[in-house]
Every structure is written in structure tokens, then in C-alpha cells.
Design a protein around this nucleic acid. Structure first.
Length: 469
RNA sequence: GGGGCCGUGGGGUAGCUUGGUAUCCUUGCUGGUUUGGGACCGGCCGACCGCAGUUCAAAUCUGCGCGGCCCCA
């Protein structure tokens, strides 16, 4: 039972592979999912990486409640307008109707800033930089897809207050860099960074920086975001303080988040027709040992396999000594799950003091002396990472096309690619592009040259457009 | 917002037109022989989305509900 073909039918392949690799099960409520150990452990790898980066930068972890009173959520008008359609409400406790209904957090700006306003009195209280690892609920109405669009998901959300806009700006850039490293160095996924349009930016932000990439079906996907909130929240929430000149001023704020959507992006981009391919640095188990057992010759092989497992402990090795399954079956099992390297050891290898080492990304097999195994694994894991990254990078680069007219943009997008165009920045033009080509505005950078491909006006953005998740 | 398609064991399916014992694959459990690329033989567990109607009899026909998918705006 081979997997569905990834190229010709991506969405069926995706649904199938995440089930076969035992990543999730569906929850009883539409749009919810159970993250099983195979996917949760990858999330833990991301958590470990991001958390240590945040902490090294001086961010502390905290936890705020998931229930947000309606009047708090409503304090910033753009914010509530943006999130209102997707908020899930708690209205009852048992049979008693609550006096004020409670939102289940779709994001935590409002509940955190309510507390921040109490805590911040002086310039000495700043900067305040807190992060939390939590679940959020956004009641999406588009059809759900595991990881990519779920009504409940896990993420970290960082929320900071600075005395000056400059400091806040610097933090947004820094967080975007950390996210970029997470994608590129940990997950082997190339991304492009840019500013969201006024329409697409976070509800209540002055500007949003996003990282985006392309999925195998040619649709772009927003992979994470960092927002500069200006004083849009600090004013209604009264986050103010006495500065060094004894003047009462409002704080400058950011928020930034990275969610379990990233897992879906990773499974989708790296997987192949055999199943998942987990990038080595994020793989909870980097190596699997499959002993080849012949009747009557099991003992020495198992002994050697166990010794290998012990000596390669730092790679979190799995030893597949299940009885009653053929070696071929085991190979396939681990290929579906995407373990980066497989070691095969049989009687022949024990005799020769060697093993067969197989890469998941290319399928290439080599025979290695046990004495050289550790150093070979180390260099192969590095090579697998860069090979996976390069492959994805090439795909992304080939999928971005500079265009100079609307018809060109339409053509590029219909071919499953992302178009890059000069754009005047007007929301009206953005709507027109969406309507005529089906392409959404992704992100882009400010420019002072070029002319808008739609109306010829001076461009303010060099912007990416594409079909999008 | 408009239109179309579909709900059958854990997963994938046949059966529905023409109402009558629910098919096959796979997973899982189990016993044995195996094991260098998804082993084989035997045994077992497991399903017609819900409600109402028509009928001697409904997975099949009708209505409503719930759920899923696709296309268009």
C-alpha cells in the first residue's frame, strides 16, 4: 500500500501521510485534533529551541488565563473587529447564565495588557517582555486541515512593552530573525520575510512582519508573525509610566507568535511518496537500528545491535527489535515516520564489523565500519540537513517570479507560483488583484522606485502575491 | 452568498439504479513457520451518520437534521 502521489494530489497525500505516520488523530469536534507522540515530540523540539533563544534574549515565561471578559476584548476596536467572527464564548456555568460572557482566548493581548497596565508605573519597570506557551481557539469556518488550519492550536505568544518605539522596532526585527533561524536552521525550510499589507496585518498592529513559504501545491502559507503594536493597545489599556523626565507617557508594544502550523508546513514540504522526512536537527530520534535476524543466528546480531544503541545514545536511537515483522516491513515503517538515518545490522555485518547506513532524504545506502560509525553519522546528519534545505530553497526560488503586469501576475499564480510585483500599496488595488487573479497579498518590502503594475502610480511596496492558505 | 457531490468496522472500499444473509483490501489481536525492501498459513475483534416515513422487509426509496468534500462569487 504505497502512499498517494505527493505531486499529483497533494491534499490527499497530506491527509494520508499524517495518519500513516501516526502523527495525529481527529478530535470529536470538527477542526480539533489530537497530537500523538510522533508529532508532539517534534513540537517539543521546536519549543526547546525557541524557548532557549527567547530566554537568552531576556524574555521570561508566564501564564495568563484563557478566559477573557468581553469588555476587555472590546477595548481596542480594530482588534475586536478582526477577531470577533472567530471567538468562541463561554456563556454558561452549568445551568446558570453568566453575567458577562467570557471569550476563550483567540490571542492574549487584551488579558495580558490589562495586567501590564497595573504592573507598569515607572520607566524602571521597562522593558517588560513575557512569553507564554498556550493553546488558543479561533473558530474558523473554512474547512479544517490538521496543523494548517485547526480551531484550536498551540503556540507561543510573546508580548512586550518598551519605553521607546526604537527599542520595540528592534525587538520585532530580532524576533523575526529568531523565527527565521527556527525555520531555516532547525526545520530546513526556506522562508521569505516581509511586511503584511494594511489589510492583512494583525488586527490592532501598526505593522506586521511575516515569514512565508510555498507549499507543494503552489499555495503560499504564512508561517509566523511578529507585530509592532505602536501605542494602539497601551492607550486604551492605560499602559503608561513616568519617564526619566517625570512625564507620563505610553509604552510601545510588540507581540509575536509561532504556532503548530509550522509542523504542518514542515511535514508537507519535506515529505515524499514514502512518507515523512524529518529534518535531523528537529528529529526527536535521529537514528533507527533494524537488526536483520535469521533463525538460529539472532543472538550475536541482537547483542551487536544493543551495543550500537548504547554507543550512539546521543542520537536518541531507536532499536527496532520487534519480533514477527520482516526487515522490509520495519524499513517501511520507519521511512513513513521520517527517521533521518537507518542502520541495518545482520550476521554478515557482525562478521565484518560494519553496518549498512541508509539516508532517508536520498535513500542512498553505504557500508560503514563500526569504528567510523559515529563520525559518519555526525557528518551525514549535517549533510542531510543542508540537502533538505537546498532542495526546498531551490523549489522556493524557482517558484517566485517577478512580474510587471496584472495579466502576467495572473498567469504566474495560475501556474502555482508566487508573483513579485511593484504595488502602490492601496487596499483597493489589493482587492482588485485578489478578485481578478485569486492571489492574496502575502508580504513585501518598502521601495522608493518602481511603478504599480495595476495603475502605474509610484510603488510603495515590492510585494509578493499568491494563492494562499 | 450560489451550485454540485458524498456519509458503510480504526483507515480505504463494494453493494444502492431494480429493497431481502453487507464485499474486498488494510490495520489491530492471536498461534505457527519466517525475516538483507511492505513474508506466508490459520483463528479472532470490528461498520450501514441520526430521526421520522413508506414497506412483510430499508445500507438501498422519501423527508428532515447532522457531518464531510468540491466548484463558483
Amino acid at each position: 500500500m504505497a502512499l498517494k502521489n505527493k505531486k499529483s494530489n497533494f491534499s490527499e497525500w497530506y491527509t494520508e501521510v499524517i495518519q500513516k505516520a501516526d502523527l495525529i488523530d481527529y478530535g470529536p469536534v470538527s477542526g480539533t485534533m489530537i497530537m500523538k507522540p510522533n508529532s508532539y515530540s517534534v513540537w517539543e523540539s521546536i519549543q526547546n529551541y525557541l524557548d532557549s533563544r527567547f530566554k537568552r534574549d531576556g524574555v521570561k515565561n508566564a501564564y495568563f488565563p484563557m478566559f477573557i471578559p468581553e469588555k476587555l476584548l472590546k477595548k481596542e476596536s480594530k482588534h475586536v473587529a478582526g477577531f470577533a467572527p472567530e471567538v468562541a464564548w463561554v456563556t454558561h456555568a452549568g445551568k446558570t447564565k453568566l453575567k458577562e460572557r467570557l471569550a476563550i482566548r483567540p490571542t492574549s493581548e487584551t488579558i495580558m495588557y490589562d495586567a501590564y497596565s497595573k504592573w507598569i508605573r515607572s520607566w524602571k519597570d521597562l522593558p517588560l517582555r513575557l512569553n507564554q506557551w498556550v493553546n488558543v481557539v479561533r473558530w474558523e469556518f473554512k474547512h479544517p486541515t490538521p496543523f494548517l488550519r485547526t480551531r484550536e492550536f498551540l503556540w507561543q505568544e510573546g508580548h512586550s512593552v518598551f519605553a521607546t518605539k526604537e527599542e520595540a522596532d528592534r525587538e520585532v526585527a530580532k524576533m523575526s530573525k529568531i523565527y527565521r533561524d527556527t525555520y531555516e536552521k532547525l526545520m530546513a525550510i526556506p522562508v521569505f520575510e516581509g511586511l503584511k499589507s494594511e489589510k492583512e496585518r494583525f488586527a490592532g498592529a501598526d505593522y506586521s512582519i511575516s515569514l512565508e513559504t510555498i507549499m507543494p501545491d503552489g499555495k503560499a502559507i504564512q508561517s509566523c508573525t511578529a507585530h509592532h503594536l505602536g501605542q494602539n493597545f497601551s492607550k486604551p489599556f492605560k499602559i503608561n509610566f513616568l519617564d526619566k523626565n517625570e512625564k507620563r507617557v505610553y509604552g510601545w508594544q510588540n507581540s509575536w507568535g509561532f504556532s503548530t502550523r509550522s509542523l504542518g508546513v514542515m511535514f508537507a514540504i519535506h515529505g515524499d511518496d514514502k512518507g515523512l522526512v524529518i529534518p535531523p536537527r528537529i528529529a526527536p530520534n535521529k537514528v533507527v537500528i533494524v537488526p536483520i535476524l535469521f533463525k538460529g543466528k539472532e543472538e550475536p546480531v541482537l547483542k551487536a545491535a544493543n551495543a550500537l544503541k548504547k554507543s550512539l545514545n546521543k542520537y536518541s536511537v531507536i532499536l527496532d527489535d520487534r519480533k514477527g515483522y520482516s526487515a522490509g516491513r520495519k524499513f517501511n515503517d520507519w521511512e513513513v515516520r521520517g527517521i533521518p538515518l537507518r542502520i541495518e545490522i545482520g550476521p554478515r555485518d557482525v562478521q565484518n564489523k560494519s553496518v549498512v547506513l541508509v539516508r532517508r532524504d536520498t535513500g542512498v545506502k553505504i557500508t560503514v565500519k563500526i569504528s567510523k560509525l559515529d563520525t559518519t553519522i555526525l557528518s551525514l546528519l549535517k549533510e542531510i540537513h543542508s540537502n533538505m534545505y537546498d532542495r526546498a530553497k531551490k523549489k522556493l526560488t524557482n517558484s517566485i517570479v517577478n512580474v510587471s503586469s496584472l495579466s502576467e501576475l495572473k498567469k504566474v499564480v495560475s501556474e502555482g507560483k508566487i508573483a513579485r510585483a511593484y504595488w502602490c500599496g492601496s487596499s483597493k488595488v489589493e482587492d482588485e488583484i485578489k478578485k481578478k487573479t485569486g492571489a492574496k497579498s502575502l508580504n513585501g518590502e518598502f521601495v522608493k522606485t518602481g511603478k504599480c503594475i495595476v495603475n502605474g502610480k509610484p510603488a510603495t511596496y515590492r510585494h509578493y502575491f499568491g494563492k494562499s492558505y
